[in-house]
Write a protein that binds this DNA or RNA. Sequence first.
DNA 1: ATGCTACGGTGACTTGAGGTCATTGATGAC
DNA 2: GTCATCAATGACCTCAAGTCACCGTAGCAT
Lengths: 251, 251
Amino acid sequence: MTGNGANSIELLRFGQMSSRPRSAAKRSRIIDIAMHHFAENGYHAARVGDMAAALGIAKGSIFQHFGSKDGLFFEVYKRAVRSFPKYLDAPAEVRSVGFFQVLQYWLVRTEHLLREDWIPYRISLLGNYGTDLALKREINRFLMAEDPYGTVAFVRFGLERSELRDDMDVEMIVSILDWTIERFQDALLTAELDPGLFRRQGELPEKKEARIQQFLSILQRAIGAADPVSVRPHPALRKVSGGNAAAKARG
Amino acid sequence: MTGNGANSIELLRFGQMSSRPRSAAKRSRIIDIAMHHFAENGYHAARVGDMAAALGIAKGSIFQHFGSKDGLFFEVYKRAVRSFPKYLDAPAEVRSVGFFQVLQYWLVRTEHLLREDWIPYRISLLGNYGTDLALKREINRFLMAEDPYGTVAFVRFGLERSELRDDMDVEMIVSILDWTIERFQDALLTAELDPGLFRRQGELPEKKEARIQQFLSILQRAIGAADPVSVRPHPALRKVSGGNAAAKARG
DNA sequence: ATGCTACGGTGACTTGAGGTCATTGATGAC
DNA sequence: GTCATCAATGACCTCAAGTCACCGTAGCAT
């Protein structure tokens, strides 16, 4: 490489340098290419050697940075998952309608997000189902520690608005949400991405809409407050509901 | 091996012989050992060579029978999953109480079943989360085709007794049940078998009971009929519109 | 400028597990 | 007793993960 000096100056301009400037930049490039390879070929079929070749570097370099293929994938997974929006990133006008409106917003949009950018989604699928139990344990630790979708904050949001049952542990609601949303999304999305990977749900687009509404109504009954219309007028956090999502979903 | 003749005679007594008697018996023995190896070491760490050694046969034999490690694992998985009880295998007196009683019965007992025999459970965990997307696709095809837990029949049972909402597709209820039960069981069980693999739920035994009750109540609200007390023995059992479930949910 | 040091990059090498196949040996039919 | 069939064998192949001794360069001290 000839332009090293220029290179680090350029890096400086992006403010990417910490103590190990070139290291960080290179790691990032590796993760980027690796993400494509994993997404396109799956975990096992993706070869570290190919990634190195695509980057024009030696295979050993990758191992020096990430220790192992698992380690590399873990970094890829974290980046992919962090690139997803959090629940409360929904537009303010949607948030103001309420908890279940936010859910609906994301369920409907997931498909569009997927089409724009299927790679991170595929990575998360691999991390959830297609690698190895040891790695999955790390992944779950990460998900619990970082809560990248902001599920906990989202549930608190719903609780503050009295839209969720307050007679259960927060942990329980969070788990239920995480589980069902994840599976439902997988079922919606993999129909096209990986046909046959999950119990098929609504192959037809218009059916898909109906499924989402059904699913939301189920969730609302499951974890929603008993009477979502009568929001107790708490002086401090009085957010008058714009109605309950399930009622709207029907109409 | 010396007792081949005696061996096949013994097999005859069990009526296990089809056109390929020794083949079937050997396949079975291989699957048995393989199940132990997979369960104890995980999918990747389990070595086909070790299994062959443990069986006192050549590695090539195993490949001749199953084609590949994936193929072998698939057979192991099928056997493991088929060894689990179906929902409606619950005792008649439990069944007669109703759908959710059956669910509770199994949730409470799962732990005991696990302790008696953790190996098939571990295999199903591997199949669900720890192998490879291509294999997982096969597994899901199998689960859909065979419905080894009898979820569909179980849901029909609940519908016939008017204990489940009849305003949703059966498919949807089945999916919800499959997803949540699987994840809930995983969360309950892996706390000890694979610490850190799932969001922890009830580390303490007495908490575990409470979790099960909470979980059941959630499920009941989600997919249960609006008024579970009034079980109407409808002769024609179809389309008894139960009114608005959410409104009555608080009882 | 010059030598020194530390560190990231290199690629040939090792390891080791999945998978193959020509050969062998046993089984059952005639 | 002979032969055809087919499963069992184990030496062999392939191929990708992972290692390591060496090297070149950057940054520093003199």
